[in-house]
């Protein structure tokens, strides 16, 4: 159940947007499609919604083959990055739209709209026009509008992309809580790894039109399939031709088994951690250490240290460019 997309191909002219992409979104789950801009994730979302037709492949929604259905018949809620608010209607009419199309009786519409406005904390805004709302409020209205018709699936296309950082963080948390309450199968697209890690149960990393890796946030962070996923999902630095997390490196003032000598080029305090830039045999790398460690080792420009990955650190070989490996875990 939930959503199953199988072997989706989509081209725009010469440009391959999706190349044999298959994705599962479990019923009631909250999945993020994460990847760089232009990588195909929005296209996939729109194919699931029926706003684009795939060249080949199938889309199944709750057990029903939806590939040939128009968006009207798929019962998916869709939230756009720029809200797509009906500018000439007030908030009430916006949210009521789907119910009016379905010719529900007025009292029922009234009840449901007010219910939803409460849910998204827009009670009292019913008679405002979208132009009178802030970006965050407009997006909440868009969400209420999509939820009003009780869709089986909720799709969000970079829903917080047009908002400022503070509002983004608030809405992120809010979306997670909303999902915990409502449990509608949800899939959202984002290029912000922090957002994906914070909100989603599972993340599908899509780049270059292909699925690169699928897993929980922890799985992706701790066991990245390749160098692309590793560098996309968190900070990385290169040591001995391998990528490793800067906080997984340890420094010594004398040589030890497995260490390489390095010269400190810069020491910067970032919050309560310290970032140490190193020159390791001509290459640049950086290490994240605590303030204590920095003081203990007397780290400053020009000091020589010895560095190695800690025991059990995850490292990934740096592949040749343009070669994200396809890795599917169910």
């Amino acid at each position: 159940m939930g959503i199953e997309a199988r072997n989706i191909d989509k081209r725009f002219g010469d440009f391959v947007a999706l190349d044999d992409v298959s994705v599962d979104i479990p019923s009631g789950g909250l999945v993020a499609l994460l990847g760089p801009s232009g990588g195909g994730k929005t296209t996939l979302l729109r194919v699931i919604a029926g706003l684009e037709q795939p060249d080949s492949g199938t889309v199944t929604i709750n057990g029903e083959d939806a590939t040939r259905l128009s968006p009207q018949r798929r019962n998916v809620g869709f939230v756009f990055q720029h809200y797509a608010a009906f500018k000439h209607m007030n908030v009430y009419r916006n949210v009521a739209f789907g119910l009016e199309i379905r010719k529900r009786p007025k009292p029922e519409i009234h009840r449901r709209v007010n219910e939803l406005l409460e849910l998204v904390h827009l009670e009292g805004f019913a008679h405002r026009r979208p132009a009178q709302l802030s970006g965050g409020q407009r997006q909440r209205m868009a969400l209420a509008r999509a939820l009003a018709v009780e869709p089986s699936v909720l799709l969000l296309d970079e829903p917080f992309g047009a908002l400022d950082a503070q509002v983004r963080k608030e809405l992120r948390t809010w979306l997670r809580r909303l999902h915990d309450d409502i449990h509608v199968t949800t899939c959202f697209v984002t290029h912000d790894q922090e957002e994906a890690m914070e909100v989603a149960d599972r993340i599908v990393v899509i780049a270059g039109g292909k699925v690169v890796q699928v897993g929980t946030p922890d799985e992706l962070y701790d066991h990245p399939a390749d160098d692309f996923v590793m560098s996309f999902l968190g900070p990385v630095t290169k040591l001995d031709g391998r990528l490793v997390r800067p906080h997984d490196l340890e420094l010594f003032d004398a040589s030890a088994p497995g260490t390489s000598p390095a010269t400190v080029t810069r020491v910067v305090r970032v919050g309560f951690e310290v970032r140490v830039d190193l020159d390791v045999a001509g290459s640049e790398a950086w290490v994240q250490v605590t303030r204590d460690t920095a003081e203990r080792l007397g780290l400053r420009d020009g000091v020589t240290v010895h560095v190695r990955p800690i025991e059990g650190a995850v490292t990934v070989a740096v592949a040749t460019p343009n070669a994200p490996t396809t890795d599917e875990t169910s």
């Binding site: 199988r6 080949s56 492949g57 199938t58």
Partner: peptide, 9 residues
């Protein structure tokens, strides 16, 4: 696996 027999995209 259904392929769409449809006009070019």
């Amino acid at each position: 696996d259904l392929s769409l027999t449809e006009a070019p995209p």
